[in-house]
């Protein structure tokens, strides 16, 4: 009974909201910058808000603004965004085993709001031995979503006074957030050297790939190859038992 109660408490919407808080500064600053860039590209605040509400992807929205400003063809913009966001395929697959048995509809709701950051927070939660549930994930996702939406609108409204957001260092909030999430992930690993090798090979592969492929393709290739390296090392060192 006691155990059951704890399990229910862990899967609470409020706890998901709380666990989103450390990443909020990242969402707010990047979202604000995305709004400013959108405004600079000639988008209206309504268009920026609609894009945040439906597309809800930072890198995609920056690229969209850049390509709209450059008057790129609609088909090229959509294809580029598809490509940039293709890495979600890996994130969605990696998180799927933790939502086994959930209805398709609930998985669809979770997946539709999956971002690099919410994925990172969720997987850190798993790595530190906690379980992730539907309501917790919903709290995490909804908090991130609302903050992103409001931040991009704020950026769109104030954008005309801030023509060069990168001057204020806002663009460093994104890598800072990823570094934080990576460190937490490494911190909670049992065998530290395996994920260290994965991280290092991922960095080297993405740099190597950048000479041949576009950035988003490089990230996908690096993730696939270095995860394979990690899985192979793990199999060798533990005789197949994980």
């Amino acid at each position: 009974m006691e155990l059951n109660h704890q399990a229910i408490q862990k899967d609470s919407f409020i706890q998901g909201v709380k666990d989103c808080v450390p990443t909020l500064l990242g969402y707010l600053s990047i979202g604000f910058a995305a709004g400013v860039v959108g405004k600079t590209s000639g988008m209206s605040v309504s268009e920026i808000a609609l894009m945040s509400a439906l597309l809800y992807a930072g890198s995609g929205q920056f690229i969209a603004a850049g390509m709209i400003a450059a008057s790129s063809p609609i088909s090229a913009i959509i294809f580029t965004i598809f490509f940039i966001n293709l890495r979600h395929l890996l994130l969605s697959a990696a998180i799927a085993p933790h939502f086994k048995g959930l209805s398709s509809w609930k998985n669809l709701v979770i997946g539709s709001q999956l971002t690099d950051e919410s994925f990172g927070v969720a997987m850190n939660h798993v790595a530190s031995g906690k379980t992730i549930g539907y309501r917790w994930m919903l709290g995490l996702n909804m908090t991130a979503y609302l903050n992103w939406l409001l931040a991009t609108i704020a950026g769109g409204l104030l954008g005309k006074w801030i023509p060069h957001p990168e001057v204020y260092g806002l663009d460093f909030a994104l890598p800072a957030m990823f570094i934080g999430l990576l460190v937490l992930q490494l911190h909670s690993s049992k065998k530290l050297w395996v994920p260290m090798i994965v991280a290092l090979s991922s960095v080297l592969i993405v740099i190597g790939a950048s000479y041949i492929f576009t950035g988003s393709m490089g990230v996908i290739i690096a993730a696939v190859l270095s995860s394979t390296i990690g899985a192979v090392i793990q199999k060798w060192t533990s005789d197949g038992t994980s």
Binding site: A93, A127, S227, G230, Q234
Partner: peptide
């Protein structure tokens, strides 16, 4: 599953390097 477990670290590291 063993492969998927390495995806978080791999993706985060790649994104940091790219950024």
């Amino acid at each position: 599953i063993r492969w998927l477990q390495h995806i978080p670290v791999a993706v985060m590291a790649a994104l940091i390097a790219q950024e």
